[in-house]
C-alpha cells in the first residue's frame, strides 16, 4: 500500500517523536509513505480565525499537489491537518464554483478527489486481524484511557469512521492487542485547549486537568492520543497542571502508534517514547 504522506508542521518540529513512532509502525506494516512534494501548512486555527478564505486555500493547495502527483490516498497523522484536508476536499467535491475559484488561487487544478486518512483510519485499514496476527507482544498491564479530543471525530459530517460523541475505535484496536482500555469515562472528546498552549495557557491547564483527572478516577494508568497538540497539552504541561491543582497525576501519555508499535515488537527507543515528558515505564 502506498500513501502520499502529509506530515504537517508539528511532526517536523517539536512532535518529531510522533513522526518517528508513526513511521516505525508503517515500515513494520509494509505501508509505503511518499512525502508530498512542497506541501504547505494547513493553516490550522490561525487561518480559520483570521481569514476563512485562506483556511480553504491552504489545504486546497496540498490537495492539488496530491492530485498532480497521482496520489489517490493521503495519510496525515495530525488530526487538525487531516480534518482540514478532508473538510476542504468535501467542500470542493460539492461545489463547482469553489473548484474553479480554488484552482485559480492555488494555481493548479484541484477537484477534492483525494481520500485523506488519519492515524486511526490507517490502522483500521490494515485491519485488526492483520495487526493481531503480526503482533509479537501482548499489551498486558496497559489500562489506557483513549483520548480522541476534538478533530479526530469532528465535524461528524466529514469524519465518519467513528461516533463523534462516544467513539471506540482506538479502544477496539488496543483491546485486540491485549490492553485493557478504560471504556467508560467522561472526557473522551472534550477539548484540551489545543493550539492555545502558548496564547492562553490557563485555559489549556484547566481543560487538560479535567481530562487527566477524570481518566485517572476511572482507573486509567496511562493516556493514548493520536494528535500532536493533545500530546503537548497532556504530557508536556502535566507537571505544571499537577503543581497548579496540587494533585499527583503521573499518567504517561502515549501516541496510539507507540502502543501499536510495542505490540508489533518495535523497541521503545525507536518509537521515541523516551522523548515524552512524563516518564513511561516501557
Amino acid at each position: 500500500m502506498k500513501y502520499g504522506y502529509y506530515p504537517g508542521c508539528a511532526l517536523h518540529g517539536s512532535s518529531y517523536d510522533y513522526e518517528r513512532s508513526v513511521r516505525a509502525c508503517m515500515e513494520k506494516l509494509g505501508v509505503e509513505l511518499a512525502e508530498l512534494d512542497d506541501w504547505i501548512c494547513c493553516g490550522a486555527t490561525a487561518a480559520h480565525s483570521i481569514n476563512r478564505k485562506l483556511a480553504t486555500a491552504l489545504p486546497a493547495r496540498t490537495l492539488a499537489i496530491a492530485e498532480r502527483d497521482g496520489f489517490e490516498q493521503v495519510f496525515a497523522p495530525c488530526p487538525m491537518c487531516s480534518m482540514e484536508l478532508i473538510k476542504v476536499g468535501n467542500m470542493l467535491k460539492d461545489s463547482e464554483s469553489l473548484r474553479t475559484e480554488m484552482s485559480e488561487i492555488v494555481e493548479d487544478t484541484v477537484s477534492g478527489k483525494t481520500e485523506v486518512v488519519n492515524l486511526v483510519q490507517i490502522f483500521q485499514g490494515c485491519g485488526i486481524d492483520e495487526l493481531t496476527a503480526r503482533a509479537v507482544r501482548k499489551l498486558d498491564g496497559f489500562k489506557p484511557a483513549c483520548y480522541y479530543g476534538c478533530l479526530l471525530t469532528r465535524p461528524p459530517k466529514d469524519l465518519k469512521f467513528d461516533d463523534c460523541e462516544n467513539p471506540g475505535s482506538m479502544e477496539d484496536l488496543l483491546a485486540a492487542l491485549g490492553a485493557e482500555p478504560v471504556r467508560a469515562w467522561n472526557y473522551k472528546t472534550e477539548c484540551c485547549g489545543a493550539g492555545l498552549t502558548l496564547a492562553d495557557g490557563d485555559s489549556v491547564e484547566d481543560l487538560s486537568y479535567k481530562i487527566l483527572s477524570n481518566a485517572k478516577k476511572h482507573g486509567a494508568d496511562c493516556m493514548v492520543v493520536a494528535c500532536p497538540m493533545c500530546h503537548v497539552n497532556l504530557d508536556m504541561k502535566q507537571s505544571a497542571i499537577e503543581k497548579r491543582f496540587k494533585e499527583k497525576l503521573d499518567l504517561p501519555v502515549y501516541y496510539l502508534s507507540d502502543l501499536v508499535g510495542l505490540a508489533l515488537g518495535i523497541d521503545a527507543k525507536t518509537l521515541c517514547i523516551d522523548k515524552h515528558f512524563v516518564k513511561c515505564g516501557v
Binding site: H48, C150, R154, P155, C164, E190, C191, A194, L196
Partner: peptide, 9 residues
C-alpha cells in the same frame, strides 16, 4: 472559544 466544534456538531 477553542474551536473544538462541539457546538456545531
Amino acid at each position: 472559544c477553542v474551536s473544538c466544534l462541539t457546538c456545531s456538531a
